[in-house]
Nucleic acid binder design. Structure first.
Lengths: 264, 264
DNA sequence: TAGAAACGTTGACGCTGCGACAAGGTCAAG
DNA sequence: CTTGACCTTGTCGCAGCGTCAACGTTTCTA
């Protein structure tokens, strides 16, 4: 047989056969006078065996090991390890598909936020807020999306979870819109604008209980991730940054009075 | 933020961040005087978005596309395609695991043949045959293993299926052992040895009905895969090859008489 | 009998998503 | 001053082949 025949016989490509030669999986056969490889049945047998093993998902190196020691002992080990591997893969794929399904459902409901795929909780919050043309609202949504996925897929979804009760509040959208509007007006205001203090205080008051617990846990919001806090404030113009600063301070204060604070 | 901070924040490595820069997924930020990259919150937002997308299983190129057109339309398309992809992957992995489970069961029952993983049917046949020290029996097993997996995982398991009834025959092992023994004796005999004809005929008689149907289907065994028939015979010493040839001819004859043959 | 189509040969690059070096420069702390 | 922990660019490596390229051989066909 020539290489094309044996390849077709085993159901692989000629390239694969040559690759197996290069990797030392399959011995090189004799050559004809013209340089063509001449395969016999033994090669077909070995090639078929290689294919059965690779089909199971073994890597070529593992196949080589298995072929090397003629006892079946090694094979069993490899197969068991492989099964564990595949089990993990299957779980991973399934989890991805579940998240995908949730996303596609959101998308078909027209609730897919422009920030890309976010957690279901956050998606509900965004949906409750509805579309907006406020610049700062868009920015805030981005911040929330960021927070939503800090440090890994399970990391720090707590804040969003804490905010979720808001999504069920019928007055929510209206109140938020008003607050965003007032924040927008401060876009180019000075850092000592008199509207800063009251707005900050109202934001503090608007936060649900659950958020306070988080703030208290995190040592008064000090540890918002290395350098993250500064970057957060730096992302706002002066007056708005002041509002945020006052809001954070107010939350910390409120948390201290309510829960008894982190470390004395 | 420096690169290490933003990377930790988003839960990726610095290498990944730089890679995203190179691939144009994430814009390069400003540099400090010393050449360090200086990241702001916007970058963190974008990086987190990239990570959410890659986590779903999107390739970097797809992520780039999704980020490029700011409408969510493309995202939905990509997600749907991805879901199909993952569905196929999941099915493939599950099928492999099922076969693996069957193999491991065989292995634990001590029935794992040295020819490597074969179909359950063939494994039963081998188990029924039991261990043997006959040289030709080992060769035959290899041939069967090869046949078992011709041209793909579902291809041509028919022959083995046709032989399966033998595995349930209580006399099977003994009869086969005797026939193998007589074949072994012909290892170095001449091509005109008088023992050839009767042995060939007995082999024909020993084949189950189902095999005949296969032979008839395949145009009297002529099309045993390009060049395969020759290689098959070439794998035996002269006298044994004669036996096989006579057996094949006898089977074709028997098939013609029984079923009315392929093409007139 | 010539030419095209279908084989074969070796060699080298491409793909994915980074990890892991190398060979440095920078910066804060002890 | 020296560590040690950062940062910089650049390069190779990985799995399992697919896919040219550039060329020789065989075989079918007109």
């Amino acid at each position: 047989m020539r290489i094309g025949e044996i390849a077709a016989l085993a159901g692989v490509t000629t390239r694969a056969v040559r690759h197996y030669h290069q990797q030392g999986l399959l011995p090189e056969p004799e050559r004809r006078a013209n340089g063509y490889r001449e395969y016999g049945l033994r090669h077909a047998v070995e090639l078929a065996r290689i294919r059965r093993l690779t089909e199971l998902g073994l890597g070529l190196a593992e196949v080589k090991d298995v072929l090397a020691d003629d006892a079946g002992r090694e094979l069993v080990e490899v197969l068991e390890e492989l099964d564990g591997d595949l089990a993990r893969q299957e779980a991973a794929v399934r989890e991805r598909r579940e998240r995908l399904a949730a996303l596609l459902e959101q998308a078909r409901a027209g609730e897919l936020p422009p920030e890309g795929p976010v957690s279901p909780d956050l998606a509900r919050l965004f949906a409750a807020l509805g579309p907006t043309d406020s610049a700062i609202a868009a920015k805030d949504r981005e911040h929330l999306a960021l927070f939503d996925s800090l440090g890994g897929p399970e990391g720090s979804g707590e804040l969003v979870a804490a905010l979720r009760p808001l999504a069920d509040d019928p007055e929510f959208a209206g109140r938020v819109e008003e607050l965003y509007g007032r924040l927008d007006e401060l876009a180019e205001a000075a850092a000592d604008d008199p509207r800063i203090a009251p707005l900050g205080d109202e934001l503090v008051a608007a936060m649900p209980e659950a958020v306070l617990r988080l703030i208290a846990q995190e040592d008064a919001g000090q540890s918002l991730g290395g350098g993250f806090g500064e970057a957060f404030l730096a992302d706002f113009p002066a007056a708005q940054a002041e509002v945020v600063r006052r809001m954070l301070a107010g939350l910390a204060e409120r948390a201290r009075r309510a829960g008894g604070g982190g470390r004395p």
